[in-house]
Design a protein around this nucleic acid. Sequence first.
DNA 1: TCTGGGGTCCTAGGACCC
DNA 2: TCTGGGGTCCTAGGACCC
Length: 347
Amino acid sequence: MPGRAVIHIELDSFFVSVEMKMRPELKGTAFVIGADGDPAKRGFVSAVSPEAKRKGVKVGMTLRQAKKLCAEALFYPADLLSYEQASGKFMAILGDYSPLVESFGLDEAFVEVLSDKGKDPFPAALSISNEMKSRVKRELGLTASVGVGPNKLIAKMCSEAKRPDGFFAIEETEVEKFLRDLPVGSLCGVGARTAQRLGELGIKTVAELARTPVSHLERNFGPIIGRGLNEHSRGIDESPVVPFSEPDSLWREVTFDEDAADPYILKETLYALTEDVTARLKASWDKALTVTIKVRFNNFMTLTRSGSMQEATDSMNDIWRTTLKLLEGVDLPRPVRLVGVKLSGLV
DNA sequence: TCTGGGGTCCTAGGACCC
DNA sequence: TCTGGGGTCCTAGGACCC
């Protein structure tokens, strides 16, 4: 029985590369992409040119912080339409090599290489990934980092191990050695919070996690996450490569430039968001059963309220009535910095 | 002093039914 | 008047991902 072979491919500094192709004059300059491109407003950095990176600007910091660190940087809004176009071309190239391509955001994807007549698909995966990489370079002018492994978890960790323009492959027999000394936080699904809790239990490396009894992990993290941690620590990941899936929910939220204390502004904003998300619902020929609103106060305390309608609908009237009822059930003891609306239970 | 936006999945607890 | 146990559905919140 041959094993699986999964490729993970990720474009290097995707947003920055696309911007530089559209505006060649940016070459060699410090620039930052994020939100609507106004560093005076609230918003996060999505991408940074190498020149701005050298000044300490990082993805995930606020635009204001970025401006402080690098006053001469140019700021641009994220031009999602252009990124989506480039992403489509990228995904089309991957689709030439396998029917099983799962996009993961705009700039990365998993590709499962199918076994030919029961043969081990691993060698084929190696040559396919090389070919993808050079076609992406030749046809799109973008570099990519590629990882190959027996499953999605290992493939993704491989592509992250060598960047940019990297290539790294691990066969099943090498997995344990590869994982052993890595910190638990490098496993997919172990974020800052979980890494900290594991640290408190004396578990710092992947090898230590693998030695921890499943029952101990289940007690501390619940049955599903506990078992998942154990499997991932041993390099086991059975999750399939899923080519396309309908979204389960649609979400719109907005942070005010200035915290809002006036209930009328909240209502007005929620109405606009509800209209927007309902339009997207209709465009995808879906109906939604449940509405959720989110309110974040100026002290960052965040609450959600959800309610279901009689039956799934795409009627703005019904959805807005539900949204409004949820809003009216919320106490507003202090100014609000963010409101959002989610539609779920899509059919 | 500051902390976006769009998603997914999991957990815990309560309601409800048999 | 008291009240088990299993299953399912719903809601609220949190962790994680890009």
